[in-house]
Simulated scan of single mutants.
Amino acid sequence: MENLPLYISFIFGIITLITLLLFYRVIKEADLKTAKPNTHIIFPALIVWLIIQAFLALNDVYSTHLNSLPPRIVLLGILPPVFVIILLFNTKKGKLFMDSLPLLSITYINIIRFFVEIVLYCLFLHKAIPELMTFEGINFDIIAGITAPFIAYYGISKSKISINLVLCWNIISLTLLINIVIIAFLSAPSPLQKLGFDQPNIAILYFPFNWLPTFVVPVIAFGHLVSIRQLIKKKINYSSTIVKQ
């Protein structure tokens, strides 16, 4: 994008790389024996996905033909990860895989959200997104990033916070994520735009920021869904144990 300092793009590229490595660590630490060998497949697949998204953005696939429905970034960048997540939740192997993922490492990934919000604020200052997409607007996602290490350490590692509170944190944090996703979608230039007309959300249409909705957000959302699933199962198992006693 024109008039955007290179360091902002560089920082976000690093954030995406860290997200990839943290997610790779989550999969590698899975308890399921069949999951660990699959890291050799999943990790290259994620790299290929990032390369494809970079290619599409660098060739202006997302930043042109803005009147198309559905928007190209939704069709080519967002729906595929959503489809994969739905598939995992609706297959036996997918459920076993998700239940084997380490809750602690999944929770720590959310720290990345703090740095994402800093980048979003920089993008606002350089007129690449509207103010309402930042913590000075109606985006409170930074709260999840700030509280994540405390929930991970005291709630999961040390078990000093109840399962109910950790579950509530995941639900609230997922809600915060959905909130900014909706704001970003309605602020992006398309026939469906309802917000941010003074300064549309153009950043996500360009490299490397298109990695945010096509990779970083799906990883965070998937982590919350897995965490909520695991925590609910723990509550049910705990309740069953109490009843039997």
Rank of each mutant, 00 (worst) to 15 (best):
E2F: 10
L4F: 10
P5V: 13
L6Q: 15
Y7V: 13
F10G: 14
F12R: 00
G13K: 03
I15C: 07
I15Y: 08
L17E: 05
L17M: 06
I18Q: 02
I18N: 01
T19F: 05
T19C: 11
L21Y: 03
R25H: 09
V26M: 02
V26K: 04
E29W: 06
L32H: 15
K33F: 13
T34A: 15
N38V: 13
P44K: 04
W49L: 09
W49M: 11
Q53I: 14
F55P: 14
F55G: 04
Y62A: 03
S63K: 11
S63Q: 12
H65R: 15
L66M: 02
L66V: 00
P70W: 14
I73T: 06
I73R: 01
G77F: 12
I86W: 07
L96N: 02
F97E: 02
F97P: 00
I106P: 00
T107N: 06
I112M: 13
F114R: 02
V116R: 01
I118D: 06
L120S: 11
L120W: 14
A128P: 02
A128M: 07
I129R: 02
E131M: 10
L132K: 06
L132I: 12
M133D: 04
T134K: 11
F135G: 07
I138D: 06
I142D: 00
A144H: 02
A144Q: 01
G145W: 02
G145T: 03
I146A: 11
A148K: 12
P149W: 04
P149L: 09
Y153N: 05
Y153T: 07
K158F: 03
S159W: 01
S159L: 06
S159K: 06
L167W: 00
W169I: 05
S173T: 04
T175G: 15
N179G: 03
I180Y: 13
V181I: 13
I182C: 11
I183D: 13
F185N: 04
L186S: 01
A188I: 09
P189M: 11
P189L: 09
P191Y: 07
Q193D: 10
K194Q: 11
G196C: 08
F197K: 14
D198E: 12
P200Q: 12
L205W: 04
N210G: 03
W211Q: 12
L212F: 13
V217M: 14
P218V: 01
I220D: 00
F222P: 00
G223F: 05
H224L: 03
Q230V: 01
I232Q: 07
K234Q: 08
N237G: 15
T241G: 13
I242G: 12
V243N: 15
V243P: 15
Q245P: 00
Q245G: 01
